[in-house]
Design a protein around this nucleic acid. Structure first.
Lengths: 143, 143
DNA sequence: CCCATAATTGAGACTGAGTTTCAGTCTACG
DNA sequence: CGTAGACTGAAACTCAGTCTCAATTATGGG
């Protein structure tokens, strides 16, 4: 947390942005909710803790956190975005359960390698990717 | 086209749905615009041809075409959906140029294989997936 | 061939996620 | 400190897509 705050502060100052109370609170809460939350989860979590920030500020701050690389944005179908803190975590992709909404992570260096190969072949400069597998998790499948 | 119409008619009757003028026109236009269009492309294309259907009907009919497997829906970031006819075409994924919007297709049986392997390991029943690589196409990269 | 029934349509209201605006507030450099 | 310029919240707005409902139309049975 100390470290995260420092890193965010660093990002902010490098971009002539300011460390405000709202940004401090939001960073702290993002770390507290843990992985795979959406803006409403965060809002509820904050209110439960007696804290608040407007939706607009939440979106604005999340954008900065994403920009700084401290948080990843995961685009789900129909434009519902979820976020996950990436503090020293590895890149990974997701299995998404269509029934219960569970999100399971997976990583595959092999897929990464193939992606790079594909880009090389197509002369494409990759800046990012999304790889999502949809279906039913173990629990939901068996019912 | 004949074939496509027959296939759609078949899908409709199997689902107690009706073959209306609007649906006929939309199917025809979907095939005419070719690959990777969004709803506005389709609407414009139709108006240029002196044809029309309401937005609501367009969305409803596209949903049926997707359901019948004749068209695939490609979810882009921020909930902008694009569609592509799949008449006897192979499954594939996409490279998306962030600058000019070009969409390049790629397929990788190897990735498919890995996906299945991942699902097996996680006891996950896959019903579909999205695999998109974002970046800059050859032309946009070199500028 | 015609009718009744149920599906379909279009216009426009509505939704939900996210963005923008703008006046008042606050941060932090000098 | 003071102040330029960044930040914030409320509310208006945008955008893609969905829903409602009254009027229209396809279709299967007689």
């Amino acid at each position: 947390m100390q470290q995260a705050a420092a890193r965010f502060a660093d990002y902010l100052s490098r971009n002539r942005l300011r460390m405000t109370r709202e940004r401090r609170v939001i960073l702290e809460q993002v770390l507290a909710v843990g992985k795979h939350f959406d803006v409403d989860d965060l809002l509820v979590h904050m209110r439960n803790g007696g804290l608040r920030a407007s939706r607009a500020t939440l979106y604005r701050t999340l954008a900065h956190l994403v920009d700084s690389g401290m948080v990843h944005k995961v685009e789900m179908a129909k434009g519902q975005a979820r976020y996950e803190p990436m503090l020293g975590r590895h890149h990974h992709d997701h299995l998404v359960c269509l029934k219960c909404g569970e999100i399971i992570e997976f990583e595959s260096p092999e897929v990464e390698r193939i992606q790079e190969e594909v880009c090389r072949r197509k002369r494409f400069t990759m800046t990012g990717h999304t790889h999502q597998i949809r279906g039913y998790c173990r629990r939901c499948s068996s019912r």
